[in-house]
């Protein structure tokens, strides 16, 4: 149990980078960007191909980020300059990326099991420190017998994710960032305040997909492979993370909202892990569960509001005195 929870948190921290990207488009820009399903795989594919060809893993991961940024920029271009509907431009890009990803990989699945990934490098640095032994012996005191093989990934990725969060927070408070947020809030206003909304949207969608691809590259290296289908439903997972996080942790300020998104991504992974332990559920059911979570999160508050309003009216009517008109 502990070991599977540990795995959930570990991958949750990495998926949080993807969720931050989805937050940028879905919430900040108010741009429902479906490119994510494709750009996540693009990230993993570019990293895998680079690593297999002997590029240092850190550089390979940066290539992945850049590829995602470019893909996002094209989606942004389609939408702003090409005047294509936001959803459609994402779908078009996602579809095009499927073929591109297949070309990058050269085959449906590219294994990195025998290659040096960023995490393997990390592991060899980490083992020198002896932190694993210290932490595991500490946990051993509590009677846990199956312990994680390394804490390196969780620790370092948590730091990386928090740094990305802080940079995002800063960016959204700069003069450029304020204009970016205003695009999602009141586009007409920010245009009348002399901001080039087209270019800002293109860069915004680009940055978002850069983060998604970075996340994809890391998840690929964590699992030891890149698969052309690994991105299916990724946008819904991102949305689920954003919505769960916002519901649980609130959105009062930007810093709070981005923290909530990270929390949401981790909790989503925990939910998945727990769901997979239920006997009658299979791995393939996960997409359905994810969709159900998003649907509930979207619909439940509205139903709740309608019910409350109904109750209020009934009470009011009683107060005003016995009119039986319903």
């Amino acid at each position: 149990m502990f070991i599977s929870m540990f795995g959930a948190v570990e991958s949750g921290v990495i998926y949080a980078i993807m969720a931050l990207g989805v937050y940028l488009t879905f919430r900040v820009l108010d741009f429902p960007d479906l490119t994510v399903d494709g750009s996540f795989v693009t990230g993993a594919s570019v990293a895998a191909l680079s690593i297999v060809n002997g590029v240092p893993p850190i550089l390979a991961t940066l290539f992945a980020l850049l590829a995602g940024f470019l893909a996002g920029c094209i989606t942004g271009l389609l939408h702003t300059k090409g005047k294509v509907n936001a959803l459609l431009s994402g779908i078009l890009m996602m579809t095009a990326l499927y073929s591109i990803n297949l070309r990058i990989l050269g085959q449906p699945t590219l294994s990195m099991l025998h290659e040096t990934t960023i995490f393997k490098q990390l592991g060899s640095f980490w083992s020198v420190t002896g932190i694993d032994n210290a932490l595991n012996s500490l946990l051993g005191v509590f009677g846990l017998d199956r312990l994680p093989s390394t804490w390196a990934i969780l620790t370092v990725m948590a730091v990386v994710t928090v740094i990305i969060k802080l940079v995002t927070d800063f960016y959204l408070k700069t003069e450029v960032g304020l204009a970016l947020r205003a695009i999602g809030d009141n586009k007409r206003m920010i245009r009348s305040l002399s901001a080039n909304t087209d270019n800002l949207t293109i860069v915004g969608v680009g940055l978002s997909n850069g983060l998604v691809a970075l996340s994809g590259a890391l998840i690929g290296q964590l699992g030891g492979f890149a698969d052309v289908n690994m991105g299916i439903g990724m946008i819904v997972i991102g949305l689920a993370s954003v919505i769960i996080g916002e519901a649980l942790f609130g959105t009062k300020t930007i810093a709070r909202a981005t923290l909530a998104v990270i929390g949401g991504a981790i909790i989503y992974r925990i939910i998945v892990t727990l769901a997979l332990r239920v006997d009658f559920l299979e791995t393939g059911d996960m997409k359905f569960i994810t969709a159900a979570i998003v649907i509930i999160a979207l619909v439940a508050p509205k139903v709740h509001q309608v019910q409350r309003e109904k109750k209020r009216r009934i009470q009011k009517r009683k107060q005003l005195g016995g009119d039986s008109h319903a």
């Binding site: 408070k173 700069t174 003069e175 450029v176 304020l178 204009a179 305040l193 002399s194 901001a195």
Partner: peptide, 12 residues
Amino acid sequence: SRDKKRRLKFGV
């Protein structure tokens, strides 16, 4: 920021 270039510095 209307009549200035928007930069990567705190807006407020």
